[in-house]
Amino acid sequence: MGQVTVTLNVNGRNRKVTVEPRTLLVHALREQLGLTGTHVGCDTSQCGACTVFVNGQSVKSCTLFAVQVEGDAITTIEGVAKDGELHPVQEGFWEEHGLQCGYCTPGMIMASIDLLNTNPQPTEAEIRDGLCGNLCRCTGYQHIVNAVQYAAEKVKA
């Protein structure tokens, strides 16, 4: 099958990727654009390690073909910190030990940012429910919850 060229805006820059129609967005990001911070942890859309933003909303980039997001704005974990300054959620993950092996972390951070975008002052239960699209095997989630609470506090202050 032929290759197609897809134009995207990734982390604020216009980029072109040449892909097969079946190329998953996560593979285009990782292998063509070198944005390897987005990970693949499953093949059935459960784990959320591949979470990126498309037009400001969290999505699982392993369940999208690159051709589907033609012209869209993509944000990956590499684009979250601005001008060398960590996003409050990133800061929360660092301060509260919200990660261990780090593999789920980029997706978890993206999902957490999305959660706070929708609900800036979530309860603990809302945080736990809001992260139901992301699996972490290391942390038991408690420090992740703390990290999101840290970010919510910081944004409020």
Partner: peptide, 9 residues
């Protein structure tokens, strides 16, 4: 349904 990411698409 599913989770937030799934509901977005």
């Amino acid at each position: 349904i599913g989770d937030p990411q799934i509901r977005h698409k």
